Computed example of a mutant assay.
Amino acid sequence: MDALDLNPDGYGGTYKLVGGRPSLDFVNTISWPDTEREHDWLALPENARRWFAAMELPFPRGKTVDVAPLYKARQLLTRVLRPLAHEQTVPEAALAELSKAVAKAYQSRAIDPRTLAWRWPEPSTAQDALTPLLLDAAELVTAADHERLRYCPSCDWLFQDQTRNGQRRWCDMADCGSRDKARRYYHRTKA
């Protein structure tokens, strides 16, 4: 899994697409959430543009884009998806807010006459660009196997376990998996 070309802005880590779903990778744009190591990969507006391009999602073309809606949507998706991954109850207020946002997102799509697939108009704002992410999150909440929605015990990133045996434990074996195995080995041999 290769690191995405995002500007770390002085941060020592890298960002990888490990979630398996756009909405999960969007939540994961906060590294080490709720710790002193926390880093927001979308703090630089250019990183938002690069992230959407890597996800093959449309993003507004203007040079200056107000990215505040991205932060608000990410907070909402975090309040819904993180509890699901941790096998906790999702707050009703967060579900109601997601439901309202999804209803609005559905109104902006249309059937493409050439492909007969859903398409969204070219986004003119960051809020418009969120439509595919909101719909992906709604599908994850309503139709996906929640048993396969997991979190990394090392960094708390979210992912959908798509392995055949359903035994994926870390966001990325090369990073958190190796670190966790080394830590456990150290504690075993120290005693």
Rank of each mutant, 00 (worst) to 15 (best):
F52S: 09
F52H: 14
F52W: 15
A53V: 07
A54Q: 13
A54I: 09
A54W: 08
M55C: 12
M55E: 14
M55A: 13
L57E: 05
P58F: 00
F59V: 05
F59H: 03
P60K: 03
R61G: 14
G62M: 02
G62P: 01
K63V: 12
K63R: 14
K63S: 15
T64S: 04
V65T: 08
V65Q: 09
D66E: 03
A68F: 07
A68N: 13
P69R: 14
L70C: 05
L70V: 10
L70R: 11
L70N: 04
Y71E: 10
K72T: 14
K72Q: 11
K72R: 15
A73M: 06
R74A: 00
R74S: 03
Q75K: 06
Q75D: 14
L76W: 06
L76Y: 06
L76R: 11
L77Q: 13
L77T: 11
L77E: 10
L77S: 11
L77I: 10
L77F: 11
T78K: 01
T78Y: 03
T78H: 04
T78Q: 06
R79T: 10
R79V: 00
R79C: 03
V80F: 04
V80K: 01
L81K: 08
L81Q: 04
R82A: 03
P83T: 04
L84C: 09
L84D: 04
L84K: 06
L84M: 15
L84H: 02
A85K: 08
A85Q: 05
H86C: 11
E87S: 09
E87C: 06
T89H: 09
T89Q: 08
T89W: 05
V90C: 09
V90R: 04
V90M: 10
P91M: 12
P91A: 10
E92P: 04
A93L: 15
A93P: 00
A94V: 11
A94D: 13
L95R: 14
A96C: 04
A96T: 15
L98N: 11
L98R: 15
L98T: 14
S99W: 10
S99T: 15
K100Q: 13
K100W: 04
K100I: 08
K100P: 02
A101R: 15
V102C: 11
V102E: 05
A103G: 06
A103E: 14
A105V: 05
A105P: 02
A105Y: 02
A105Q: 02
Y106R: 05
Y106I: 05
Q107F: 04
S108A: 06
S108E: 10
R109I: 09
R109T: 12
R109C: 05
A110P: 00
A110I: 10
A110R: 15
I111P: 00
D112F: 03
D112Q: 07
P113S: 05
P113N: 01
P113Y: 02
R114T: 03
T115E: 08
T115S: 15
T115A: 08
T115G: 04
L116P: 00
L116V: 02
L116C: 01
A117N: 12
W118P: 00
W118F: 13
R119V: 04
R119Y: 01
R119D: 01
R119K: 14
W120A: 02
W120L: 02
P121S: 04
E122W: 09
E122F: 09
P123S: 05
P123E: 10
S124E: 11
S124I: 13
S124T: 13
T125C: 03
